[in-house]
């Protein structure tokens, strides 16, 4: 079942009165349960593509359908609500609200969704257990390492029960051990809960874990390769 379907996607920016095509006619479909990475050099359009798929930006042309709902022509207010209920985000940094604890950060999303307190409490504990941070449940982000913060961000992204998770260079600021730990958690969630993950990354360790590697260059897909479990292939 297709989670995301993109047709002839175009995104143009005005740069010094010259139109620059950041995304130039991309066609793409992501199936449920995929563990996909988008790679490419800086400026190739990875983040722009992720922003468009996540409804954070609007395309100049083309179509984006998520679970058969077109989001390319959706109003801003509807898009915010759509993101809240369908898409999980993990960013490179500034993922968490600094004044809230790990649990509160996770519950915050569910509160925005209007879920009852008891359900929020139960699920935040489950998710923190899943990412191995139950002992840090009452810690604020400043008391957590970079890797721990990203694990809370993954738990927060899962809290809303999204269709898929978009992760924009989530390991960029992490050391090797933290990266490995984060990837193991995401991989386990992908295997066990069939959660769809789409990453943009420069990190070879992330690429090795992926089922599918899409290479982007100058806003176009240069290659789209399915691979057996990356690490076993090496």
């Amino acid at each position: 079942m297709k989670v995301i379907e993109i047709k002839n996607l175009i995104k143009e920016y005005d740069d010094a009165e010259v139109k620059v095509k950041a995304i130039n006619g991309v066609d793409l479909a992501i199936e449920e349960g995929e563990f996909t990475v988008i790679v490419g050099p800086s400026g190739s359009g990875k983040t722009t593509l992720l922003n468009l798929m996540g409804g954070l930006d609007k395309p100049t042309g083309g179509e984006i359908n998520i679970n058969h709902t077109s989001i390319h022509d959706m109003s801003d207010s509807k898009l915010i609500n759509f993101r809240l209920n369908n898409i999980g985000f993990v960013f490179q940094a500034y993922n968490l609200i600094p004044v809230l604890t790990a649990r509160e950060n996770i519950e915050f999303i569910m509160e925005l969704q209007g879920r009852p307190r008891a359900e929020r409490r139960k699920r935040s504990v489950e998710l923190l257990e899943a990412v191995g941070l139950i002992e840090r449940i009452n810690s604020r982000p400043a008391k957590l390492s970079g890797g721990q913060q990203q694990r809370v961000a993954v738990a927060r992204a899962l809290a809303s029960k999204p269709r898929f998770i978009l992760a924009d260079e989530p390991t960029a600021n992490l050391d090797s051990a933290s990266t490995q730990n984060l990837l193991d958690i995401m991989e386990a969630l992908n295997h066990e809960e069939k959660m769809t993950f789409i990453f943009s990354t420069h990190d070879a360790r992330v690429v090795r874990k992926a089922h599918r590697v899409i290479t982007l260059e100058d806003g176009k897909i240069m290659s789209d390769v399915m691979q057996e479990h990356g690490e076993k292939q090496q």
Binding site: S77, L84, P98
Partner: peptide, 11 residues
């Protein structure tokens, strides 16, 4: 941070 909050669904 505000960008993140709006991205994750805070209207």
């Amino acid at each position: 941070e505000l960008g993140m909050l709006m991205a994750v669904g805070m209207n």
